[in-house]
Design a protein around this nucleic acid. Structure first.
Lengths: 207, 207, 207, 207
DNA sequence: GATGAATGAGTGTTCATTCAT
DNA sequence: AATGAATGAACACTCATTCAT
């Protein structure tokens, strides 16, 4: 992979914030350069173009996003506990990378640009595989039922979070989460538990 | 509410498509005018500005979005069946209005513009109320368990769909849905069932 | 000459006000139509174009501007009194037609448009002739000195007024003329007397 | 004050010419850019906007307009000669800055824009003060009469010139000044003398 | 005769990018 | 390597005018 120097990383971070806040098209290279305290020309100089900066940003972030959960499968805990851990990890990772998720969420459906998101696809596939393994393990132990569409579980987790976070001002008001600290706390507790319960119930309850 | 004439509706539809495809900032008024087969100046003439066009669009779409589900509560069916119907209605409505949902999804998290989305908030609140009524009914009949965070159910439904649809190219490949017809079919059957099962399980299964 | 109907005159008056206030280029036909309470298309309809509206306006106003001073020369008063009367008439007429004077003042030096201002030139020439006659009469009576550049007297009168009026906010403050009534009063008394004295002194005082 | 670089001054000069010839609203930024041989975007780049360009222009010109006449009062010449010199200076300065005077003349009476013309007001006030001092000196020496409205003398000088110059095509024809050189010559001789005589007569002749 | 709808040319401005150093 | 100046294309929008009725 390409290595980025300090200045480049500053630019990437500035860009990430702005892209997630006002969108790619809503962000000007001048705004990025101002936020990163560098000259406008540096963006073209370092990354080639604004679009390539986005690509670099995606690569930069996704490369650090690979879930370090391979050992989860090896742990001697029940599949149910594994699911709980997996969901918590999912939420945690999306929350940590919420800016990038927001960007990707929009850019993936934007027909103007077609980013090379193979890296992201790989991550998703590997996560899906991990989930499938856990579920199959649970099904083999007769803990989980059989008729579940495994592929639709990640979108439920990711989608729930993304929707919740993108409409955070609405939900903050609805749930009385007056500060960002309260919101973060809510996400790591109530929200995570809700998702855990949801996925567990889906896997266990026969209907 | 303001009434829109035929030409205005054509413009609104063209704008909706483009906004959902390439974003508000990624859409030029010339692209809209070309798609709607009208002169550029007509957009300012009819709506005042590009931004006001978006506002008009939101009003236009949301006003027709109110769920006609009040009678659902009156039907003599079990709360479980009500939930099934409600989820199916939800999915159906989001699918029908997927363009607008995509636009709103982005605009709600975009700090650049702050649309007056009171109408949309009202819709969400009324839907949430309806859901809460059904759940309370089920809880009163001891069909549903008590410890559920009702407010987090709509984001799970909406978020699951939105994420699924915004990443449809990924999921189409993953699930072998080679055509849009297959995709639509999948959504109305497997996807809907998945969500119905998920919500039902969450409400019924005590864990 | 062309006759104008009531509606046309309303348009002309609205246009005159706006032209004098914000200039020809600064005035939009829509602003005129709004002020005159008529449809925008009427302007093109009645006058052909915005530019031709200006031409019509000039014709309309100048035709009523001809000084009715021919009898002044016949009156049995001294040339000095005639000069006094002439200056007072001048000021009065410019004040009455100040909007049109303001328009002409600017448009005459505007290279973009070359109005056919023959009518205005005729007026100026005839006024100059009248002035010259009075001065010659005074010189014949040895009341006025000989070495005076008659052609430069009208610009002194018109220019003094125009400059004063175009900078009226400055002079109102300088002279404490807090209201428009005070300003009008000042013009008809002190200002007029100042100009009368000036011209008389110029004509009489040998230096 | 802000310093302007070479390119900026080129732009300012091009703008001044065009503004004085066809007015501010009649001038397009593209016309300025063409005349100054620069890219259109440079105008926004250097001055922010077309309107701010005008403001910069006014500041640029007025700052160099301050009359260097303080020593006039110290010279050991009679008040009459001082008036002569003052008028000549006035005419000279207006002639040198005729473009800016034309612009200001229009903009001061244009309700659309309200330029901050404090600098110009200061210049006018200081000139008026100088004039008042000379007149009071002459009155103390019984050379000048008492009943004169000093504040109306500058408008007579400035107005006479401005009107003359703005209608120069009329006066050139009237006075047979077929070339611009002849016109300039006329202004520095006959026209200046006319104004000197006028003001002197006003101050000296008791009527 | 009179008008609301519609047009295309043109407006000032902003944009990502490149140039000269 | 790093930058301020400069560029041309594109932007949303406004304009006077004309069209269809």
């Amino acid at each position: 992979m390409t290595e980025f120097n300090e200045k480049q990383i500053e630019i990437l971070q500035a860009a990430e914030n702005l892209f997630s806040e006002v969108g790619f098209d809503g962000t000007t290279v001048r705004a990025i350069s101002k936020k990163a305290n560098i000259n406008v020309a540096m963006i073209s100089y370092y990354f080639g173009s604004k679009e390539k900066l986005l690509e670099s940003l995606v690569i930069y972030r996704i490369s650090g996003m690979q879930m370090d959960l391979e050992n989860l499968f090896l742990e001697h805990i029940s599949p149910i506990e594994k699911i709980e851990k997996l969901v918590a990890f999912y939420v945690q990772r999306i929350y940590s990378n919420r800016c990038m998720y927001q960007i990707l969420h929009f850019e993936m459906s934007n027909k103007k640009r077609d980013l090379d998101l193979k890296a992201f696809t790989d991550v998703k596939n590997s996560n899906l595989q991990l989930l499938a393994n856990i579920i199959h393990e649970g099904q083999a132990l007769n803990l989980f039922k059989k008729n579940v569409t495994i592929e639709l579980i990640p979108p439920t987790i990711i989608g729930s979070f993304t929707h919740f976070y993108m409409n955070k001002s609405y939900y903050q008001k609805l749930l009385g989460l007056t500060t960002d600290v309260l919101l973060e706390n809510y996400i790591t507790t109530t929200f995570t538990e809700h998702l855990q319960k949801t996925i567990k119930a889906l896997l266990v309850y026969e209907n």
